[in-house]
Design a protein around this nucleic acid. Sequence first.
DNA 1: CTCAGTGCAAACCGTTTGCAGAACG
DNA 2: CGTTCTGCAAACGGTTTGCACTGAG
Lengths: 171, 171
Amino acid sequence: MSARSAGHEQGSSPTLRLFGRYLRDRGLPVTQQRSSVAEVVFDSEEHLSVDDIERALRERGERIGKATIYRTLDLLVRSRLVEEHDFGEGFKRYENRLSGHSVSEHLICVECGTVTRFESPELYQIESRVRSETGFIPIRRRLEIYGLCKACQDAGVELTTEGLICPIEII
Amino acid sequence: MSARSAGHEQGSSPTLRLFGRYLRDRGLPVTQQRSSVAEVVFDSEEHLSVDDIERALRERGERIGKATIYRTLDLLVRSRLVEEHDFGEGFKRYENRLSGHSVSEHLICVECGTVTRFESPELYQIESRVRSETGFIPIRRRLEIYGLCKACQDAGVELTTEGLICPIEII
DNA sequence: CTCAGTGCAAACCGTTTGCAGAACG
DNA sequence: CGTTCTGCAAACGGTTTGCACTGAG
């Protein structure tokens, strides 16, 4: 905050250095705040909400405004180092794209909300078929399967059948 | 609006009658407004925003409050007759699930925003594999492929490469 | 006639923006 | 030193909610 700074980013993760390069390449300042926000996201394997990030920063003893967090996340997403998710919770989540499991497919439990990653190589077939059949060039995809996770089943949760059972039936 | 009402739903689409049944089964009143909102959604093949629906109602000469539209859409989604979508535009869209093409896979052009439906039977393989490998029971899924549509390519749109080209590279 | 629905406007809440002061290069 | 960033608070926009009034059953 006060000091002459410049000390962040040294001895840090390769990913953080990549972000530094991204900023420098564009003539953008590598600030204390940007480094801190990036570090929190890079150090986690989770899908973090903005509140999660703010909390993690506070635990490190840093108080960074939400506006700055949002602005930094925008840069991180643009740099392609971080991926933005929307699981329909009313807010976005952010994830380190270089954390090893660079998969963007998710199983989402409708009961407990747990998000699990999974891989589906079949997507490549789907995309190449789409491309050849329609001329559409795929860039990125989102596959989310909502359902009931094993843990909730074991806990005895049943699928509540809201809605019409057989909508085709008349009257 | 003024008249003694009760006249809606007669001679209307089977789907609208299904919604009437859904409401009656639960002891909920089948009101003029609910019928109108439902009819607009059932009569369209599109992914409608709340503004689209409000506009369509106004064109029919009906002025229904946004709150009522939201409340009715909630019922329609619960009845499983309508599906809710979020294409990351900052608001939701709603679609008649019984409009023939009951497919929930979409191609979304990042340039012009056009949404096109497509089918991918491969999803069944993916889901049965997920179920047997993890025990997760799939209920519904969302597959969205973002990319460049044929029309935009023909119009000369190029894919702008923002972000780091090779993030694995050092420094 | 009663209970639920409707409409209005205010509340909500995640996100964005304007601006004065602080920091990077 | 000039330009960009930061933080605060206010603005924003889609959605939700409280409440007096209207309408369905």
